[in-house]
Simulated assay, not measured.
Amino acid sequence: MTTRHILIIDDEYDIRAVAELSLKAVGAWQVSTAASGNEGVTKAVAEQPDVILLDVMMPDMDGIATFKALQAHPATNKIPVILLTAKTQAAEQRRFAELGVRAIITKPFKAMKLPAQIAAALNWES
């Protein structure tokens, strides 16, 4: 089985740390992190992860702008993106889904279940 590589883009250190620990310990995945949309796009281009876990609410370049930048770049437009958001209203969830993201995971998430949620969204064996 090949090791999956995930890039977590979230401005909150605690969220990045919990997700990274869970994905490494439970999922046995390679994890990269970025604290901003700009840093995330740069890392995605350079590292070519298998999937990106992207926070919606970030300062400067929010998750939607980051997603659009990833989609516009030929090196990253095929990488599946899963949004991570505290916005749970149906209209917001529909708007996010219409963007073409692979899935939406709501905050707060259950750290021990995060690898299985991501794997299920991508039809990967967990």
Rank of each mutant, 00 (worst) to 15 (best):
D10V: 01
D10R: 06
D11N: 15
E12Q: 15
E12S: 13
E12I: 13
Y13T: 15
D14Q: 13
I15R: 04
R16V: 00
A17T: 11
A17S: 14
A19C: 12
A19G: 12
E20A: 15
L21W: 11
L21A: 14
L21H: 13
L23W: 05
K24G: 01
A25W: 08
V26W: 02
A28P: 00
A28M: 10
A28E: 15
Q30E: 15
Q30K: 15
S32P: 00
S32G: 11
S32I: 00
T33I: 10
A34H: 02
S36K: 12
S36W: 11
G37V: 03
G37H: 08
G37P: 05
G37K: 06
N38Q: 13
E39V: 10
E39Y: 01
G40Y: 02
V41H: 02
V41A: 02
T42E: 13
K43A: 12
K43W: 00
A44K: 07
A44G: 07
Q48Y: 05
P49W: 09
P49V: 11
D50I: 07
D50V: 09
V51G: 06
I52H: 06
L54Q: 06
L54D: 06
D55W: 01
D55P: 03
D55A: 09
M57V: 12
M58G: 09
P59N: 15
P59E: 15
P59W: 15
D60S: 14
D62F: 07
D62W: 08
I64T: 04
A65K: 12
T66M: 04
F67L: 04
F67C: 03
F67T: 04
F67M: 04
F67I: 03
A69S: 12
L70A: 05
L70I: 08
H73Y: 10
H73M: 08
H73K: 11
P74D: 14
A75E: 14
N77C: 12
N77D: 11
I79S: 08
L84V: 05
L84C: 07
T85Y: 05
T85W: 05
T85C: 06
T85R: 08
A86N: 02
A86T: 08
K87N: 06
Q89T: 10
Q89R: 12
A91K: 13
A91P: 00
A91E: 14
A91S: 13
E92D: 14
E92G: 01
E92A: 03
E92T: 11
E92Y: 10
Q93K: 13
Q93H: 08
Q93E: 08
R94Y: 05
R95M: 10
F96D: 03
F96N: 04
F96A: 09
A97P: 00
E98V: 00
E98M: 12
E98A: 14
V101D: 05
V101W: 04
V101Y: 05
R102L: 09
K107R: 10
K107G: 01
K107Q: 04
P108D: 05
F109I: 02
F109G: 02
F109D: 03
F109K: 04
F109M: 03
F109S: 03
K110Y: 03
A111W: 06
A111T: 10
M112E: 12
M112I: 10
K113I: 01
K113H: 07
K113R: 12
L114K: 07
L114Q: 06
A116N: 01
A116I: 01
Q117I: 00
Q117P: 00
A119I: 02
A120G: 04
A121R: 07
L122A: 06
L122M: 12
L122T: 06
L122R: 09
W124V: 07
